[in-house]
């Protein structure tokens, strides 16, 4: 990945985190907000080289960990897993664009559910939250809707949909 694109990706992840903590603190339909940083990771992981996508997931997760109240590394683990999941399925997604919306929903819901379970294991009592179902499903729904904006934007930022240098093949 060229330096210019790398800088663009890092800046967009930072802006997404800032939007998440400021604008979406007030813009909360049904008292919930999208998981914007995760959505940005999903959007970029569709296009960039496999190792870069995993490192992006890890880095964005560490950033979220530093801004969150959870143990350092928990979000990093979740975002890295999400990036890996995207890598495994991104070729199939390009064959059938109608799957992208449900795919974003599934990855977001799976990531938030994984965080809930890991958070409870590591003492955060996330599953003790009575609104846990809502906290998993509504951000996933919002991410699915926002994907219509963010995914094309990520493609535009990277310059092209297919410029991978190391295709992920299992």
């Amino acid at each position: 990945m060229k330096l210019r694109r790398l800088v663009a990706v890092v800046v967009i992840v930072l802006i997404a985190a800032a939007l998440q903590t400021t604008m979406f603190a007030r813009l909360r339909p049904f008292d919930s907000a999208p998981a914007l940083v995760l959505l940005v990771v999903i959007a970029f992981a569709r296009h960039i080289p496999a190792e870069a996508a995993l490192i992006l997931g890890f880095g964005a997760g560490v950033l979220q960990d530093l801004l969150a109240d959870s143990p350092l590394g928990l979000w990093a683990l979740v975002f890295t897993s999400a990036a890996y999941f995207v890598l495994r399925f991104r070729d199939r997604l390009e064959d059938d664009f109608s799957l992208i919306g449900p795919f974003v929903f599934a990855v977001t819901a799976g990531s938030l559910a994984l965080f809930s379970v890991l958070g409870t294991i590591f003492g955060e009592k996330t599953l003790a939250d009575v609104g846990i179902i809502k906290k998993v499903l509504l951000p996933s729904l919002y991410n699915m809707l926002l994907a219509a904006l963010i995914l094309p934007f990520a493609t535009w930022v990277l310059g092209a949909a297919r410029r991978r240098t190391t295709p992920f093949e299992l």
Partner: peptide
Amino acid sequence: IDRPTGVFVGLLVLSLALVTVDL
């Protein structure tokens, strides 16, 4: 295992190490 999966496993181990150190 292919290279991306190796990187993935490495990052997972690193994440768990960070969690452990932080806790």
